[in-house]
Write a protein that binds this DNA or RNA. Structure first.
Length: 578
DNA sequence: GCCGTTTTCGGCCCGACTGTTTTCAGTCG
């Protein structure tokens, strides 16, 4: 994925230029270009060959040439040159909260500091007080910042961030004078990992809310506390930013506080061109100062002639142009979901019986759950022999017979993909299943060609309907294995096989970028929770967040088919197979 | 360095908080 490598270089370039005190708008151009490159869903080589690199937003003639240079030579001369003029330690210094480019430059020039360790030593020896604008307090703050960096403020995945946010929101709701509370920031946009929690409150007496917040049980340390805005660290070490506004400004504040930053910058630029000004307090006419609205978020977009844009796609990745052209996608909603695939029971490594799982599915209002326990090779997870599989099938058919109605179980299995794409059950066995999932649980370290061939081979099997967790990553534990996604998408399209958006919070696999790419290839997607215990059925909301971030519409998601439509879809794949 | 319903130059989002200031720079989101 060349675009990620180039994006990293552009971000580094922005940091370097910032350190050198370059033109802030040039710096922003590099950052914006890097961000947009991450979101490119087409093959960069192809865009280059067709001379369409400048179609990427934020890429002009100059940056297109730099991209071309990287594609040809694997390096960008101009960036290499700037790198040589700047000490390499500045990147880690910029990571420290409270230390920005100006401070870094001062430290480097006056005290020859070029690493976090050197900075810590200097601060402890009170050498920083000799610098202009530095006194005791600033020195202490730098030491605190270093401690925070050292603690490795690893970003949380949504499985941790969502419950924590719910808990804090609940406590804030109990404070008198609080009218509305809403999580904002990257959590509301459902990004796969969250740095700090942003929470917005509408209240009539902000100071009382601030007081209650900074004195509350979730506050272990106060980083900043003003009249309308404060930041704290929870006992778990999570930073929470709280903003309090008047109820009349809640919509504009929510819009501002949700971001992304890049989305907001673009939105405000659009406002300026229309003679308007947008801030946390509302939309205003620049000339007269007249306020046009801000109580509800839709008023902010409405003032610019735009429809409300769902938070999940506010990444300055084409959503504003789509909104202007009235071509926003109709994103999948929880109400569109008619079933879940990939559910484990206690016959392999799940913890619930088939009956309990079935009841839970029926209570959720689904039309179907696909029961998918592990296949025989995956011994560590209690993989089932053909005989066990047969007994489960009988049990499942029996449950269905005893519970006629809208909801039914479907018989599936999560079947290991072995060497060269061979499946862990024979075709004769697979043909008796309603829905087979193929997944890789072995040979993670094989090379890209081997792994890709295994996935493609599995997809050629007429009975494999879905490939589970296609890249195998586990956030914070295991990198994705080497697989050529471009070829996987093409094969999925050709063989009419669906690809999974696995909703287990550490997986989210495919991720948002890859899922959008798959969708653009015309590949069917399926959100599945990979449930091992009943509460995990709720992870559907997280998987849907990924699907929505990938601009997925109901017509592209397997979960939105009725049971009859799903069975017909499976028949089509089987009939179409080579 | 990008970009155009003020289009090929001259703009480029906006406000809060902190620490050090006696009016503001730096950082952050």
């Amino acid at each position: 994925m060349k675009q990620h490598e180039i994006a990293t270089l552009f971000t580094q370039m922005a940091d370097l230029l910032e350190f050198r005190g370059d033109n802030p708008f040039r710096i922003r151009a590099y950052r914006r270009a890097a961000q947009n490159l991450e979101g490119v869903t087409e093959d960069l080589e192809r865009l280059n060959q067709e001379d369409r690199l400048t179609e990427i937003p934020g890429i002009g003639r100059d940056l297109a040439n730099k991209i071309r240079e990287y594609l040809q030579r694997g390096a960008i001369k101009a960036i290499e040159q700037v790198k040589r003029t700047v000490p390499s330690g500045i990147f880690e210094l910029l990571e420290i909260p409270g230390v920005g480019p100006k401070t870094t430059k001062l430290l480097s020039e006056r005290l020859r500091i070029a690493s976090v360790n050197q900075l810590e030593a200097a601060a402890k020896a009170h050498k920083l007080c000799a610098l202009p604008g530095f006194q005791e307090k600033k020195e202490q703050n730098i030491l605190k910042g270093i401690a925070i960096v050292r603690k490795g403020q690893a970003r949380m995945h949504l499985g941790i961030a969502l419950p924590l946010a719910r808990q804090i929101v609940g406590l804030l709701r109990e404070i008198p004078s609080v009218k509305r509370v809403e999580p904002a920031g990257s959590l509301r946009r459902m990004r796969e990992t969250i740095g700090d929690l942003d929470i917005l409150v509408a209240a009539t007496t902000p100071s009382a809310v601030m007081k209650a917040f900074t004195a509350g049980p979730f506050c272990a340390r106060i980083l900043a506390a003003g009249g309308t805005k404060s930041s704290i660290i929870t006992p778990e070490g999570v930073q929470v930013d709280l903003r309090v506004v008047a109820p009349d400004c809640f919509g504009s504040a929510l819009q501002y506080f949700t971001g992304s930053k890049e989305h907001n910058v673009r939105l405000r630029e659009m406002a300026i061109r229309r003679g308007l000004k947008i801030n946390e307090y509302g939309v205003f006419r620049t000339r007269t100062g007249k306020r046009l609205g801000g109580r509800e978020e839709a008023e902010v977009y409405g003032a610019l002639g735009l429809p409300w844009i769902p938070p999940e796609i506010r990444e300055d990745a084409g959503e504003l142009d789509a909104a202007r052209a009235k071509r926003l996608p109709r994103l999948v909603e929880p109400e569109d979901i008619r079933g879940d695939f990939h559910i484990h029971t206690n016959r392999s490594d799940g913890s619930n019986t088939l009956e309990d799982v079935a009841e839970a599915g029926r209570r959720r209002g689904y039309q179907y759950l696909v029961i998918c326990d592990h296949s025989k090779s995956l011994k560590v997870a209690g993989g089932m022999s053909e005989a066990e599989l047969g007994r489960q099938m009988a049990q499942l058919r029996d449950w269905n017979a005893r519970h006629p109605g809208r909801f039914q179980l479907l018989m599936g299995a999560e079947v290991d993909i072995l060497a060269r794409g061979r499946m862990d059950y024979a075709d004769r066995t697979l043909s008796r299943l309603d829905f087979a999932i193929g997944s890789i649980h072995s040979g993670f370290t094989q090379d890209e060609g081997t792994l890709t061939a295994r996935l493609v081979g599995a997809m050629r099997n007429p009975y494999v309907a879905l490939i589970a967790h296609p890249t195998g990553r586990l956030m914070g534990q295991r990198e994705p294995y080497a697989v050529n996604l471009e070829r996987v998408f093409q094969a999925a399209k050709d063989t009419r096989t669906a690809l999974e958006i696995n909703a287990y919070p550490k997986r989210l696999d495919l991720n948002d970028h890859a899922a959008r790419q798959a969708k653009d290839h015309g590949v069917w997607l399926a959100v599945s929770t990979d449930t091992h215990s009943l509460d995990q059925l709720d992870n559907m909301a997280i998987g849907l967040g990924v699907a929505r971030r990938a601009w997925v519409e109901p017509t592209q998601l397997l979960n939105c088919l009725t049971r009859e439509q799903l069975l017909a879809w499976i028949r089509r794949k089987r009939a179409h197979a080579p």
